[in-house]
Write a protein that binds this DNA or RNA. Structure first.
Length: 507
RNA sequence: GGUCGGUUGCCCGAGUGGUUAGGGAUCGGUCUGCAAAACCGGGGACAGCAGUUCGAAUCUGCUACCGACCUCCA
């Protein structure tokens, strides 16, 4: 039975989907006005794991992850530029060019991390009509008001009928006293009200025409407003459009809990009269030197910089799988502190796991299993399942895989034997948990890069041939030839390891 | 200031009222023509104080320190 930590309940709860056999899941995606950084990889990977696991245990999952391409205002003020427009002006591009550029790069980075594409990836800009309709519903229900051409959520009115703040554990009084003074709040009745629709200032590039009906002292009026949706609106509109008025899971970063997700709940309850989301899941932040990695601190390192090593805090380039493994070594609800050393440690661990996987593929079965081997194999699947069922405890899954790596290494060393039955179970468990669920791209060559280009087979064959000759030389105690081959290969960047009756190599 | 969370060995990082997390580093050993790898073993921990308990890193209280959110943020 899968248990998930539901932020609404502040507790792990057994996961029971609304419709048997099906799961609807919505996750807040990126705002595409810059390259994805390490922090963006966290929710992408976390919910990729959930997507994979749910699928793996037999659910049909509809996974929706949005692209925010309507730039929200940089400051919650009446005037000012949105983030995408600003980027577009700086780069002298159309806003949609900026959006397309970074969306493409986001996809590329996610693919490198082996993050599966979601079932639906809706763009906010493509759902303006749905968002306008959603705002209209809230107006109709009397939970919103018109002010100077914009429409705001009437949070006080809403709080009379629904518990505002239940997700983040706030109440209205706290928010009243604690909300900071911000500029340009004169249109709002209260500082905690938030925009559902903003009239566009003249210099605002991205805007759409909309007509709303609203009641003004009992008189029905029309509001014609050239503007754009408030920044919480797209998730309410697109989530319910593709997953229904009620669906199972909503995910995102902890920093979105308030105000974004709280506002989403308010919008949905106001429009529909009931809650939309059953399980709210939040991943924790990645920190750097103890501080949250984020745009506002300007302390982020982009995924591309990790892949190229082009950043002063990085000792070298790191493969995408190292990043993925690093993130999976910590539980998703814990902060994980980035450092180059921690990443290097993860890299070596991943290497070790990769090598074990490669050896596993080459093992030969014996008549029976050694006692310890059988004991580990017999328990492995259950243990990994229990770890995943316990709120996606990937570090524990990894630790079990490492335990079984020790067994695999013993087998490869000829220090133990494994029956055909156990061997096929062991391979099946690795396939399921390491490859399918954790999404690690372990390969049969110890995780190292092999030749680039299309001639991998020929290349591998040539190296195998060379090392075969060396093996012969070794058998003839011709150390000169043997060392010559190994040294030459080492100089070319290969690593050669002798095994009991053969060799392993990587580059 | 309010709300919430954290403090685990040299480092990263799980965890639960009593039983080895795991990885990296390090030290010793086995194996090996040499090397690498692998394997075996060692040391090293639960911020501090007090309490509950037969027993607490795990529960409670207090203290200290750190962080997140309250503004765009994954």
């Amino acid at each position: 039975m899968l248990y998930l930590y539901n932020t609404l309940a502040r507790a792990k709860q057994p996961f029971r989907p609304l419709h048997e056999g099906h799961v609807g899941m919505y996750v807040c995606g990126p705002t595409v006005y810059g390259d994805a950084h390490l922090g963006h990889a966290r929710p992408a990977i976390t919910f990729d794991i959930l997507f994979r696991y749910l699928t793996n245990i037999g659910y049909k999952v509809r996974y929706v992850r949005n692209i925010t391409d309507v730039g929200h205002l940089e400051h919650d003020a009446d005037e000012g530029e949105d983030k995408i427009a600003k980027k577009a002006r700086l780069e002298q591009l159309e806003p949609m060019e900026v959006v397309q550029f970074f969306t493409n790069r986001y996809h590329h980075d996610m693919e490198a991390l082996n993050v599966l594409p979601p079932s639906i990836e809706p763009h906010a800009s493509g759902h303006i009509i749905e968002q306008i309709a959603f705002v209209q519903k809230i107006l109709d229900k009397g939970y919103a008001y018109v002010s100077n051409g914009s429409i705001y959520m009437d949070v006080e009115r809403y709080a009379q009928d629904f518990p505002y703040g239940k997700l983040s554990g706030r109440n209205l009084e706290d928010i009243v006293t604690d909300t900071r003074e911000l500029d340009g709040q004169d249109e709002k009745r209260h500082s905690y009200d938030f925009a559902l629709w903003k009239k566009a200032a003249p210099e605002h590039i991205m805007h759409w025409p909309a007509v709303f009906r609203y009641s003004d002292n009992g008189e029905i009026r029309e509001l014609h407003s050239e503007g754009f949706p408030g920044w919480h609106m797209e998730c309410s509109a697109m989530g319910t459009k593709y997953l229904g008025e009620e669906f199972d899971i909503h995910g995102g970063g902890m920093d979105l809990m308030f105000p974004h997700h709280e506002a989403e709940i308010a919008q949905s309850c106001a429009a529909l009269g009931h809650d939309t989301v059953r399980y709210w899941l939040h991943n924790n932040m990645i920190t750097i030197a103890g501080k949250k990695m984020g745009k506002s601190y300007n302390n982020f390192i982009t995924l591309r910089q990790f892949f190229s090593g082009d950043h002063h805090l990085l000792s070298k380039a790191f493969a995408p799988m190292t990043i993925r493994f690093f993130i999976l070594m910590a539980h998703y609800r814990s902060t994980v502190d980035f450092s180059s050393e921690a990443l290097e440690a993860a890299e070596k661990g991943y290497q070790r796991m990769s090598e074990a996987y490669a050896r596993l593929q080459k093992l030969n079965p014996a008549a029976t299993s050694t006692e310890e081997v059988h004991a580990v194999v017999a328990e492995l699947r259950t243990r990994c399942t229990e770890a995943m069922d316990d709120d996606l405890n990937t570090p524990i899954v990894i630790s079990h895989l490492f335990d079984s790596s020790r067994v695999i290494n013993n087998l490869a060393d000829g220090k133990a034997t494994i029956s055909a039955e156990d061997l096929s179970e062991l391979r099946a468990v690795w396939q399921q948990f390491a490859i399918d669920i954790l999404g690690l791209q372990l390969d049969t060559n110890g995780g190292q890069q092999t030749a680039t280009g299309g001639n991998t087979a020929a290349f591998n064959g040539a190296i195998d041939l060379l090392l075969g000759i060396r093996l012969e030389a070794k058998r003839n105690k011709d150390w000169a030839t043997s060392d010559r081959i190994r040294n030459a290969l080492t100089d070319l960047g290969f690593t050669v390891k002798d095994t009991k009756d053969g060799f392993e190599w990587s580059i």
